[in-house]
Design a protein around this nucleic acid. Structure first.
Lengths: 101, 101
DNA sequence: TGGAAGGTTTGACAACCATCCAACTATCGG
DNA sequence: CCGATAGTTGGATGGTTGTCAAACCTTCCA
């Protein structure tokens, strides 16, 4: 299993971040990540009533946009928010979105 | 000619605003609006090398998302940014996006 | 009054998106 | 080693998007 692709901080594009967050499911994931600090994919699978492959698709979009970081822990996958990177690149953006979620 | 549809301030949805601004053309329009205060559609048509119907499509998305206000002046159309409405609904969001454009 | 200017609408089209499903890979527990 | 767990991948599908082009509608002006 190849390690997942994360864009470098400087390569995070505003249009991609905005597009990634313009979906209710991904906005919900973002809110959970912000509140809980991190989460395991299988936790969402148990709650969100979406096929696991659909969720996997959303994880990829968030990751490739630079919003989340994914790390492997055994057979589980752990998501965290790239808060520092996003704040460095687009100051205030994340906070204003999270305040509205 | 029916007057164009603008959502009420309370009806502006975060996902729609983010989606509206996740396109380079519309982000460019936003930047110009923020810098110049207002603009007439035909000015963009002369500069942006896109078919006028394509631009009309972008105007509609910005307007229906609640990002811009459109008013008719003779046969011209004048766009302004709904800055107060957006600030009231999503404090800080517009500023952080404009800072990154 | 007739033509030009400024936009909208409709249709077409290729590209993309969210979703599901089935099959697959990889890891853990017994 | 085997079955269960956790996700990814590829295909299919119905819907949406960005773009152009042609036709249309308003408004102005000469």
């Amino acid at each position: 299993m190849r390690s997942p692709q994360h864009p470098a901080t400087d390569d995070i594009q505003l249009t991609e971040v905005l597009r990634a967050l313009s979906d209710p499911v991904r906005l919900e994931i973002l809110g959970r990540l912000a509140r809980e600090g991190h989460l395991y994919c299988f936790e969402l699978g148990a709650e969100m009533d979406l096929h696991k492959s659909t969720l996997s698709h959303h994880y990829r979009i968030l990751r490739e946009a630079g919003v989340t970081h994914t790390s492997q822990e055994g057979r589980r996958k752990r998501l965290t928010l790239r808060r520092d990177d996003l704040d460095a690149r687009f100051p205030g953006l994340l906070d204003s979105i999270l305040a509205a979620v």
